[in-house]
Design a protein around this nucleic acid. Structure first.
Length: 256
DNA sequence: ATGGTTGTAAAACAA
């Protein structure tokens, strides 16, 4: 089974690219973030035509997540049981082929020390509570999505330049480490030991051309599923298209 | 330390 995660930064704008990309790669499960669509506007017919089932949790203008699969999606839950603050639509989970698929769009946090940074930390706390209450670390669980955190220095283009700033600050790294130590492994990192492999480049300053990137989109799995993971990779190609998302897809293949 | 760009939506705000 191949699973992909992609922050499309507006599904309305990116649908033609996503549709073509799915046709080319036919991943079995696709987790999307930043769909920026109310549920009424979710492009059901286009995914029907592609032969995918879907579950989505969207809102106007901001956020929004979705799970697509080429097989049935069951046991869907939208949002957490309890959240630090009233729900922005950033989390959806479901079961596909007996795997628990958790799709997260972790808040960006804007600036270290800001109210939004505090919200980011609290949101991750709510995710931890949710895992404690709803999941078992000995089950086959995938947590993927846009984490908005580069977990190690090799996940950024120039650590000395960005140290302490948003997505790399120590406090948020420690916070996301509480999620990892709950019971996850970073399957991309298991299969790719080197640096310079990124999933996001700022739209500004020719960041992509200069490879000024960050690895902030992740696929983490529990131990038993990590043992089933035979490869994981990033597809940079969509970032080269006209009018790209600022993120690219990350994928993982499981024998499961 | 700002500013650069994109998306949404109609002036800022989020990223």
């Amino acid at each position: 089974m191949i699973l992909a995660s992609w922050n499309v930064n507006s599904l309305a704008v990116r649908m033609p690219q996503l549709s073509e990309w799915i046709r080319q790669h036919r991943p079995n499960v696709v987790c999307l973030q930043e769909t920026k669509l109310v549920d009424e506007k979710f492009p059901r017919e286009e995914f029907d035509a592609l032969g995918y089932t879907y579950e989505f949790y969207g809102e106007k203008t901001y956020n929004g997540v979705a799970i697509l699969a080429d097989r049935p999606i069951v046991s869907v839950h939208k949002g957490f049981i309890e959240e630090a603050q009233p729900s922005s639509r950033r989390f959806i989970e479901a079961q596909v082929d007996g795997l628990y698929i958790l799709n997260a769009y972790i808040p960006n946090g804007q600036r270290v020390g800001s109210d939004k940074y505090e919200y980011k930390l609290n949101w991750i706390g709510s995710l931890h509570d949710h895992l404690e209450k709803q999941h078992k670390r000995d089950a086959k669980v995938v947590l993927c999505g846009d984490f908005n955190i580069a977990t190690e220095d090799i996940d950024v283009y120039k650590p000395s330049e960005v140290r302490g700033t948003i997505m790399v600050s120590d406090v948020e790294r420690e916070k996301i480490a509480t999620i990892r130590t709950w019971g996850f492994e970073d399957v991309f990192r298991i299969h790719n030991k080197g640096g310079g492999q990124f999933t996001w480049w700022d739209y500004r300053m020719g960041a992509f051309r200069r490879n000024m990137g960050f690895r902030i989109d992740h696929i983490w799995t529990t131990k038993s599923l990590a043992n089933d993971c035979i490869r994981s990779w990033i597809d940079k190609e969509p970032r080269k298209l006209e009018r790209p998302s600022d993120h690219v897809p990350i994928l993982a293949e499981f024998t499961t």
